[in-house]
Amino acid sequence: MTLTPLETGATLLVLAGVTLLTRALPFWLFPGGRTLPPYIRYLGRVLPPAIMGMLVVYCLRDTVLLSYPYGIPEALALLTVFLLYRWKRNTLLCIGVSTVLYMVLVQAVF
């Protein structure tokens, strides 16, 4: 489903506003460089990996596991990301190769 131009614009504005808020908040809250509350410091350390894990699951939410093709294309592409990352540590290479592999798998193989 595609949103109407008005809905699209509103969504983009909300995203832009909240993003700017997260970037500007520290400069408003701590103008003198005061130290952070420990709980906030803790969230700053643990939230990013947890949210990234959530986003990986979010991306894979339409994977079909219980019937054909049993999530095989996703598993193979993820394995490629993992092995390439271990081997070369190159973000763009990982993304490029695994995406092309996935596209070939879902378009031509499965």
């Binding site: 990234m52 986003l55 990986v56 991306c59 894979l60 294309p73 996703e74 592409a77 993820l78 990301v81 993992f82 990352y85 973000t91 990982c94 993304i95 695994s98 995406t99 996935y102 596209m103 070939v104 798998l105 879902v106 378009q107």
Partner: peptide, 13 residues
């Protein structure tokens, strides 16, 4: 079809 894996790959990396 399948181009959306670019996002999965980015977040996984």
């Amino acid at each position: 079809q399948g181009i959306e894996f670019v996002m999965t790959a980015l977040f996984t990396v």
